[in-house]
């Protein structure tokens, strides 16, 4: 993803979520989004998303 594409993504997602990002903060936010992208690339390459069950297990409790 290019710098411009990351910037557009941040602008669109932040607007949808109602988050106002000060222009001074945005380069740092973009850096963290890019770090997360690189992490996601590693995780996606494991194939876990389509071959493994999710770790959280919800166990309904008895009614009180």
């Amino acid at each position: 993803m290019t710098t411009d594409q990351t910037s557009c993504w941040i602008d669109a997602a932040a607007a949808n979520l109602g988050i106002a990002i000060d222009p001074e903060w945005k380069p740092n936010v973009a850096m963290f989004v890019e770090v997360a992208r690189s992490m996601a690339r590693l995780v996606e390459a494991t194939g876990a998303a389509s071959t493994s069950e999710a770790a959280p297990v919800f166990t309904p409790r008895d009614a009180e």
Binding site: I10, I21, W25, V29, V33, A36, A40, E44, A48, A49
Partner: peptide
């Protein structure tokens, strides 16, 4: 802020 913007598919994976 960055974490709030991540796609859900990354989290689920």
């Amino acid at each position: 802020i960055a974490g709030a913007l991540l796609p859900a598919s990354w989290y689920v994976a």
